[in-house]
Write a protein that binds this DNA or RNA. Structure first.
Lengths: 154, 154
DNA sequence: GGGCAGTAGTTGATACATCATGCAAACCCT
DNA sequence: AGGGTTTGCATGATGTATCAACTACTGCCC
């Protein structure tokens, strides 16, 4: 037995929203990953890093700056960069201002890969997500995201 | 240059919805995983399998049935079940009806773990997601999910 | 300028996800 | 009944994510 107003599980409406949200993300994410892997040779993680770098000045950023933008942990980024460097997509350069740091630079191969991948990726985002929703959905989603991201709970 | 109506990238509104959706999921997912790991000894994957099993008749299901419900690949499930069996959360039983198959049964330890985890998990779902949204958001999300999950594009 | 807390980044261990492949039982077809 | 196909699941390799521990340098305070 429980007091009115609190509830142990989710009601019908909440359940639909919650499960729907999870399923939607799983499906969309899977579609995007599959498309990238099929049409290019990048993972979603690779894609995120390359986009971030290619939008930066000179295609070069400090490691922690990438982590901030992508909201990744330093460790995750470091592992990812190691693999990407091994594939020639980025390179590490020494950082004169702070000798602990590294500058991460996109390579020519990296620019080429992202230039080829971006339009296909965006098209897939439209196909599986944007094009299936109307303006009201988009705004509701953006608004919901803002609230969820808002100040942490008490 | 591009024709009217098509666009190479996302406009402001689309961008907000899309980035918001991704960020929201990343944040929520992270919160839930952290909470589970802190308060119990289960991952989200463990949790999903155990909930599925505990809702089944006799706490026992064929492997492919679990994969269907969770929308997982057979291989992913097999690996997951191996780890869970090693920890005593589930057990594999031979399947009389089809000797290729296995029945997956939740163990006493598994029932205990999920009974302890579920209320905490649901509370966290409320805290980081449900409670931050109003009814209109929930319905919009459920509706959006339904559309996205709808018949695959042409 | 010596000590030391904090910061930038790396590494190794472990868990998780995906792919390609393998194998045995079941099914189907004639 | 025999031979090919499909199904149910397992395995190994690789890529990815997280945590804890580590190194190296910075900045600060005295």
């Amino acid at each position: 037995m429980m007091a009115a107003g609190e509830s142990q599980w989710l009601d019908e409406r909440e359940q639909r929203a919650w499960r729907g949200f999870l399923d939607m993300h799983a499906l969309v994410n899977r579609s995007l990953a599959t498309q990238l892997q099929r049409d290019t040779d990048l993972s979603l993680a690779d894609y995120g890093v390359l986009v971030t770098l290619s939008e930066a000045n000179e295609g070069e950023l400090r490691s922690f700056a990438i982590a901030d933008i992508l909201q990744w942990e330093a460790s995750r980024l470091s592992h990812q960069l190691r693999r990407m460097e091994a594939r020639g997509l980025i390179e590490r350069r020494s950082c004169p201002e702070d000798r602990r740091g590294v500058n991460i630079a996109i390579t020519e191969a990296g620019r080429c890969a992202i230039a080829k991948a971006a339009p296909l990726h965006v098209a897939e985002v439209r196909r599986v997500f944007i094009d299936r929703l109307d303006g009201a959905h988009l705004d509701a989603l953006a608004d919901a995201a803002e609230r969820v991201r808002g100040e942490p709970g008490p």
